[in-house]
Amino acid sequence: MQVETIRPAGGRSTHIRHDDLISAKGVSVVMGTDQNRQLILRDIDLSVPKGSFVSLIGPSGCGKSTLLKVLAGLVSPSSGSVSVAGVSPGEAARKRMIGLVFQDANLLPWKNAVDNASMLLGIADKSMSRAALRARGQEMLELVGLGDAAHKRPNELSGGMRQRVAIARALALDPAVLLMDEPFGALDAITRDSMGQSLLEIWQRTGKTIVLVTHSIDEAIQLSRQVHVLGINPGRITQSLDIPLPYPRDTSVTEVPEFVRLVLQLRTMLRSSHEPGDAT
């Protein structure tokens, strides 16, 4: 419960640990046509230790989702390098080391929960039998607390339950890392809280590495071990904040004075991140 390291903007961390599952170095992303080129991300250095829970937070338009897509191999950086478990993100994804969860659960409406949970695994591994896929799907549904909803179709499930199925679908791949882009963004506050708690339980039970993109200060502090703050114009990591609160955490952690202090600190960091990076 002591140190929190605040890294100044642009400052590169020189210590590269050996147990980093994800490491991005000098990643920049430029998008748009030749006439209208836009620098989305500038010079991102990020390392995520194995088994860690890291959040990316920042104002909308700061490129935090783009950064997650870079880590997932869905967007290739214009410069810089990214490695996930020692290989490129695209290769890591094909080796089923990356589990993705988006804000929209994107379930297949014609399949029930258990078939949705095993859908990606079935596409990735053509050799698995239907029964084996079902069993895996069921196992994952139980892990996310939906064991008895296996035969329900998405339109019979609530928003929170659909998102649980989406998490089960990502976990079914048995990935090394779970990349989540505002997974609880479309849910109401009460559902958000219980989803956060479930995510923490899943994290502690499975030991997966989790990178969470969020715009909720409370969520970032409640869940993660480290928070990276992104600034806007261009998107870059301005500051990082370690969250020294002990695990297991439950919702009562929000009442701890330390939590309140961290919220204030993160809020201050976010406010300063709104200022453009290039002094004009």
Partner: peptide, 8 residues
Amino acid sequence: SLVNSVGA
């Protein structure tokens, strides 16, 4: 992009 990422 989800199904593409696992090499569909």
